[in-house]
Amino acid sequence: MTDVALSRFLEMIAATEVEEISCSECFDLLSRHVDLEIAGYGIDSQWARLQQHLHQCGVCRDEYETLKDLVRLDSDGRSVVPDPFS
């Protein structure tokens, strides 16, 4: 076993809350919070619950980070990928 995996295991246990949102609830919150984060708005209770889920769930975290990068590129006016229709 690697120490990295053990640390990850302990971190997951340490960061466990009695109430956590599900992956579906996380998906519902993604777009609002990506836009808020990019706009630099503050943290609310919903934000904390989302971050807690993302901390525990690698697949949801991947989706959040990908969406955030994509929207940030869009808002910077940079083309994400060549327009397939151009």
Partner: peptide, 14 residues
Amino acid sequence: DSRFTTWAYKFAVH
């Protein structure tokens, strides 16, 4: 509560 395009993107990213 978000831009429509951000909301739409999340389906594609997922």
